[in-house]
Design a protein around this nucleic acid. Structure first.
Length: 219
DNA sequence: AAGTATCC
DNA sequence: GGAC
């Protein structure tokens, strides 16, 4: 009997909802559920050319999140600082091209959140395993900060920290699950944000990790 | 400090 | 989880 009931729930189409987290910041729940398998297949292709790696912060610490990029520009960090670079410093080659599906998802999500005309130039891909985190920070390495940030969550759930324009501002915590997209821009474009240490677990789509795609217009 | 440790 |  349990199987019958559970199967009915499994067939239920996932509800899509839109929630404003702060002025100009939206959580699009379930927005990329249907595209998730194809998005992850693209990540596998990208990873084969530009492997995930743990970047070093300017302060000399190794980041717990593993990163790679696709698109004309990629975000990197090393002892010299943070920057966007058209070349993957680990391979000496250009980052893999931004898949058409990535650009399509980013444009549609931005428009859904009130930012029509978004054209992503860079996609930072973050891989979190258990206990990996991203401390509170601002995305401010982009020359053009009129464009929003689009962030896609795949796999294991995470706690997203979203604060204000000053580091001391109180931060709210939001649960992000597989298929969610967060878009922030306008008054919240420079809001401090981060990800709490990932809880261990397993997800049918990704195994024991969470994959995050962050789209930016750099210039 | 896009990091980590410690204390409550 | 939040302060430091």
């Amino acid at each position: 009997m349990a199987g019958y009931t559970l199967d009915l729930f499994a067939e239920e189409p996932a509800a899509q909802t839109r929630t404003e987290l702060a002025a100009g910041a939206w959580l699009l729940h379930g927005f990329v559920l249907a595209q998730a398998p194809q998005l992850l297949a693209e990540v596998a292709q990208i990873e084969a050319v530009a492997p995930f790696r743990h970047l070093i912060t300017p302060g000399g610490y190794t980041m717990s999140v593993a990163m790679t990029n696709s698109g004309a520009l990629g975000w990197v960090s090393d002892a010299r600082g943070y920057r966007y670079d058209p070349i993957d410093p680990q391979t000496g080659r250009h980052w893999p091209a931004l898949p058409a599906l990535f650009a399509d998802v980013a444009r549609r999500a931005a428009a859904e959140a009130g930012y029509p005309g978004f054209e992503p130039q860079a996609c930072l891909i973050n891989r979190y395993v258990a206990s990996a985190r991203l401390s509170l920070h601002q995305d401010k390495d982009e020359l053009d900060q009129r464009a929003p940030i689009v962030s896609v969550s795949l796999g294991l759930p995470a706690t997203f920290l979203f604060g204000g324009l000053q580091r001391n501002d109180k931060t709210a915590r939001h649960r992000l699950v597989h298929g969610d997209v967060v878009v922030w821009g306008g008054p919240s474009r420079l809001a401090y944000h981060g990800v709490a240490p990932l809880a261990a677990g397993s997800h049918a789509a990704t195994g024991e990790c969470r994959i995050n795609l962050t789209f930016r217009k750099v210039r």
